[in-house]
Amino acid sequence: MTDTTEICLRLGGTSAEVRAALSRLMAQPRLAGDADFRQRLEIVLAEVLNNIVEHAYPTVPGRIDLQLAACAAGMTCRIADQGLPMPGLEAPLGLSPSLGGANLPEGGFGWFLIRSLCTELQYRRDAEGNELTLIVPWRQ
C-alpha cells in the first residue's frame, strides 16, 4: 500500500454517531479491497469508539477525532477525545472473559477484541484528553 494520505473524521460521542461514522469510513474508496482487513478494522474501531462513548463521555457526549494513515505494517489509527481518563491511566489488558461456569459473561469482550486484532497499542493522557494509537495489520 503506497497511499499514505490520511483519513480524518470528527464525530460526536454517541452510539448513533459511531455507527454513522463507521459507515462513512468503510465506504471510503481508499479502504476498498481486502475484506478480511476491512472487517478487522471495523471491529477494532467500533470497540474503541463505543468505549469512548460509554466510559469517557458517560454523561455528556463530547467530540471524538479519528485519524487513519497507512503504514508498512497496516493502518495506523489515532483516536482522540476530551473525556474522562482511562482507569489507572492505562488501557485495559483485555483478558479473555472466562466462558466456563454457568454464568456466561455478557460483557468484557470489547478490549479483548481490540487487543486481539491490533498491534502497537499506546494510550496517552495529557491536558488535551485521551489519545489512543494502534495499528490494524494488513494481514493477520
Binding site: I43, N103, L104, P105, G107, G110
Partner: peptide
C-alpha cells in the same frame, strides 16, 4: 453484516 461486543453481549443475554 456487523456485530460488535455489545451485540454479542445481547445474544448471550437472550440465551441466558
Amino acid at each position: 453484516r456487523f456485530l460488535d461486543s455489545s451485540g454479542l453481549g445481547a445474544v448471550v443475554a437472550v440465551m441466558k
